[in-house]
């Protein structure tokens, strides 16, 4: 164990302007090298975490396949870049034709605990098998524990093709 009775730092030595200047230059150069490395390497390490998930318009079938007031479950294949690989999510959305000719797309994930809901074609409602949540065809909660309506995804119609943004 080193016994250190008093502070003897370079600054406590007799002042020597040339020496002080050299110390400043040395500190400056090493700080610059360190900061450059931190910028380049830190940038490469952190950049992918800061990018937003991109939004894609995916084709969800033809408008003619959809009848008024009859929801249709469509599986969308969402491919996204995940580093060097491609990750594929499969998302099920319910397409409902609204009265004015537009189309609504409801995410099939129950807003309660994330179960997959399904369409009950007889009762014309969307039901969650897990805890009995029930939604109407507009996605509003009719019964059960869900705290909010089903999420709605933006849609647009191009010619007769339905596009859904995920």
């Amino acid at each position: 164990m080193i016994e250190q009775p008093a502070r003897i730092s370079p600054s406590s030595l007799p002042e020597n302007p040339r020496r002080t200047f050299l110390v400043r230059v040395i500190q400056g150069v090493h700080t610059t090298i360190g900061a450059t490395l931190a910028f380049v390497l830190g940038g490469a390490a952190l950049a992918p975490g800061l990018t937003r998930r991109e939004r894609l318009w995916l084709s969800a079938g033809d408008l003619s396949a959809l009848r008024d007031g009859e929801p249709r479950a469509v599986t969308l294949r969402v491919a996204r870049q995940d580093g060097a690989t491609e990750a594929v999510d499969r998302r099920v959305v319910f397409l409902v034709r609204s009265g004015d000719g537009g189309v609504r797309a409801l995410d099939s994930t129950c807003t309660h605990l994330g179960c997959r809901t399904r369409v009950n074609a007889d009762a014309l409602q969307i039901e969650c098998p897990c805890h009995g949540g029930v939604y109407d065809l507009e996605g509003r909660v009719v019964a059960g524990p869900p705290p909010r309506p089903l999420d709605e995804l933006p849609t647009r119609v191009e010619g007769t093709r339905i596009l859904v943004q995920v």
């Binding site: 490469a44 950049a47 060097a84």
Partner: peptide, 15 residues
């Protein structure tokens, strides 16, 4: 994965 570093990763080709 090396191609990803070289092409897609910001500053990846410098690293």
């Amino acid at each position: 994965s090396v191609r990803y570093v070289m092409r897609d990763l910001p500053m990846g080709s410098v690293v």
